Computed example of a mutant assay.
Amino acid sequence: MSSTPARPPGLRDRKKAQTRRTIQEQALRLFLAQGYQNTTVEEIAAAADVSHMTFFRHFPTKEAVVESDQYDPLIGRLIEERPPQEDSLTALRHALVQGLKAVYATDKEALLVRTRLILETPALRARTWDNQYETQRLFAEALRARDPGESDLTTRVTAAAALAAVTTALASWVESDGTLDLPALADEAFHALRP
């Protein structure tokens, strides 16, 4: 690991990130107002004041504008940073709750809208398995980085159980219309894995 601090993103990277955020914000606004199926990429691009080609440079599909986030790399890093004496499930629990607290503090409304859309829209719900499979792989890789001696099956099962706990907490949170505390729900879900 390098001790050199990461350079802050340049103007071009900041503009790209802002354009991406604007597209996603406008898409979510339109999905809420018109419904996911009734909203076109052209309408999203117009609302974000970009061309439809710019939309596709940032998001390969309409589904991706809902599914895309920067949470997985954050969670992967938090898992790897957990103390080595923690067992894998405890490390996942603390990393995921910590990550959810960070997301909850800055992106609560967007997370609620995106999760609700995924749970309630058949086209998005059908893609959930692929996305969760990738997230599960990321969790397992982060666990292996912490403890290379743990068996592959154990690591994968632990990652899958953690993902199921968080997914169930997210569903309960959406069912409460965001009134329940998401990090507390996730923590409670992990307790259910260890009665």
Results as ranks from 00 to 15, higher is better:
Ala142Asp: 04
Glu86Ser: 07
Thr90Asp: 02
Ala102Ser: 07
Ala91His: 10
Leu96Glu: 12
Pro84Ile: 15
Ser88Asp: 15
Ala91Asn: 05
Pro83Trp: 05
Glu86Ala: 09
Pro84His: 15
Arg125His: 15
Leu111Asn: 08
Ala123Thr: 10
Ala123Leu: 14
Arg116Pro: 00
Leu117Gln: 05
Thr121Trp: 06
Trp129Pro: 00
Leu96Asn: 13
Glu109His: 11
Asp87Gln: 04
Val113His: 08
Asp130Cys: 00
Ala95Gly: 08
Leu111Ile: 02
Thr135Ile: 11
Asp130Ser: 12
Val113Gln: 06
Arg93Thr: 06
Ile79Asp: 01
Asn131Asp: 12
Leu119Lys: 02
Val103Trp: 05
Thr121Phe: 08
Leu89Thr: 07
Leu89Asp: 00
Asn131His: 15
Glu86Trp: 05
Leu138Glu: 03
Pro84Val: 15
Tyr133Pro: 00
Thr128Met: 15
Glu80Phe: 01
Thr135Ser: 10
Arg93Cys: 06
Gly99Ile: 03
Glu81His: 12
Glu120Cys: 03
Leu92Asn: 07
Lys108Thr: 12
Ser88Gly: 14
Thr115Gln: 10
Glu120Ser: 11
Arg127Glu: 13
Thr128Val: 06
Ala91Ile: 05
Arg127Asp: 02
Val113Pro: 05
Arg93His: 11
Leu111Cys: 08
Leu96Ala: 12
Leu111Trp: 08
Gln98Val: 06
Ser88Asn: 13
Arg127Cys: 07
Arg116Gln: 08
Glu141Trp: 10
Tyr133Asn: 09
Lys101Gly: 15
Asp107Pro: 00
Arg93Met: 03
Ala95Arg: 00
Trp129Asn: 04
Asp87Gly: 06
Thr121Leu: 07
Leu112Ile: 04
Ala105Phe: 06
Leu138Arg: 12
Thr90Arg: 09
Trp129Arg: 14
Gln136Cys: 11
Glu109Thr: 09
Gly99Leu: 03
Leu112Tyr: 09
Gln98Tyr: 08
Pro84Tyr: 10
Ile118Tyr: 12
Thr90Asn: 02
Asp107Val: 08
His94Ile: 00
Gln136His: 06
Ile79Ala: 02
Arg137Ala: 13
Thr90Met: 04
Asp130Trp: 09
Ala126Val: 01
Ala91Gly: 09
Thr90Ile: 03
Ala110Leu: 12
Tyr133Met: 11
Gly99Lys: 04
Pro83Lys: 05
Arg82His: 03
Pro122Val: 09
Ala105Cys: 07
Ala102Cys: 00
Arg93Leu: 02
Leu138Val: 12
Ile118Pro: 13
Arg93Pro: 14
Ala91Thr: 03
Glu134Arg: 13
Ala123Lys: 14
Thr90Ala: 02
Val97Gln: 11
Ala110Trp: 09
Gln136Ile: 04
Asp87Cys: 03
Glu141Val: 14
Pro83Thr: 07
Gln132Arg: 12
Ala140Leu: 06
